[in-house]
Computed example of a mutant assay.
Amino acid sequence: MTNSNKPEVLAIIPARGGSKGLPRKNVLPLLGHPLIAYSIKAALESSVVTRTIVSTDDSEIADVSKKYGAELPFIRPAEFAQDLSTDLEVFKHAIQWLKENENYVPDYIVQLRPTSPVRPKGIIDTCFNKMKDNQGDSLRILTDSPLTPYKMWQLNEDGTEMKPLLYLEDNKEPYNSPRQILPKTYWQIGTLDIIKTSCITELNSMSGKTIIPYYITPDYAIDIDDIGSFEKAAQAIETNECIRFS
C-alpha cells in the first residue's frame, strides 16, 4: 500500500473467454477497436487510477489487453471463470494473488466491465471523488429504471398463485396504482463500480454498507449482451461525449 498521500487505486477489468449471448464479445471490434480496449483506455486516462490489470482466463484476451496497455500479472484460474462465477470470487482471487506474489495491496478497486464501454469522459475521477467526499464504502452507477418493480410479481412453485414482488406501507395495492404516484426507482448498470478493498477482504462484500449512487442518463446506460446492444453502444459512443479512440 502506498505511503504517499495519494491512495493506491487498482482498476480491474474482468474478462473471461466464454460468452454464450455474443461469442468472443470482449475482443469483437467496436468502431475499429476490441471491446475490452475501451475499458483499458478509461482506466489509463483516469488521474486517480494508479494501476490497471485485466483478469482473464483467455490467451487472446490477454494478448489484446497487453497491446492496449493493461497489465496481465496472472491468468485467472478456470474455477473462477465459469458461467456462475461471482464478482466477489474473481476480485478476491486478484487481490490475494497480488498480495501473495507482489506484496501489493491497493486502497480502492475500480471495476470496469468490458461489456459497458459507453462512459462519459472523466467519469472515473468524478465518481471516485464523490465516493471519498461522502465517505462511502462503494459507489455504483444508476440510471432510470425501465419498469417499476411495484408492478412486478412472483409465482409460487406450481404457478397457481401470484404475489407482489414489493409492498408499500402506505399503499396496500401498488400494482393497481398509477405508475406516476409510485416511488421513483433506479436500475444499476455496469459502467463502473468503486469499492474499498477492505470491503472485499474484510466484509466479504462487493459493496459494503454505505453505497454512494452516481446517476447517468439512459443514453450512456448500455450493457452489451447481444448484437443489438453492441450496435447501440457503437452509436452511443459516436454521438455522445464518451471515452473513445480518435
Rank of each mutant, 00 (worst) to 15 (best):
I95M: 14
H33P: 08
A81C: 08
L31W: 06
T52R: 09
V90Y: 02
G69P: 11
A42L: 06
A70P: 02
A81G: 02
P29E: 09
A62F: 02
A94N: 13
F80S: 06
A94S: 15
A78I: 10
F74R: 07
D83V: 14
P34G: 08
L84K: 13
A70L: 07
E45M: 08
D87A: 06
L44M: 11
D63G: 11
V64N: 07
S47Y: 03
H93R: 05
G69C: 09
K92M: 14
F74N: 07
Y68R: 14
D83C: 07
T52Y: 10
K41Y: 04
T56F: 00
V54S: 05
D87M: 06
L30A: 03
S47V: 07
E79G: 05
R24P: 00
V27K: 01
A42C: 12
D63I: 12
S65D: 09
N26T: 01
Y38M: 12
A43N: 04
A42S: 14
R51H: 04
K92C: 13
I53S: 02
P29R: 01
S39A: 14
S55T: 13
I61P: 00
F91W: 13
V54E: 04
K25Y: 00
S47G: 09
I75R: 12
L35A: 05
L31I: 10
V49L: 05
L30S: 05
K92F: 12
K25F: 00
S85T: 14
F80G: 03
Q82I: 05
E79C: 10
V49F: 03
R24S: 08
S46H: 02
E45Q: 12
P77S: 04
V48Y: 09
L88M: 15
K66W: 02
V27D: 04
S47M: 07
Y38N: 11
E79R: 14
A94D: 14
F80Q: 10
P77I: 12
A81Y: 02
F74M: 11
L72I: 15
G32P: 06
K92V: 13
Q82S: 11
V54Q: 04
T56H: 00
K92E: 15
L88G: 10
S39G: 13
V48I: 13
S46R: 02
F80W: 07
I53P: 07
Y38Q: 11
I95N: 06
K41M: 12
I61K: 00
L35N: 11
R76Y: 02
H33Y: 11
I75M: 15
Q82C: 05
V54P: 13
E71L: 05
K67P: 10
E89D: 15
A94G: 13
F74Q: 08
S59A: 08
A78H: 14
H93S: 11
K25S: 01
H93V: 04
A78T: 13
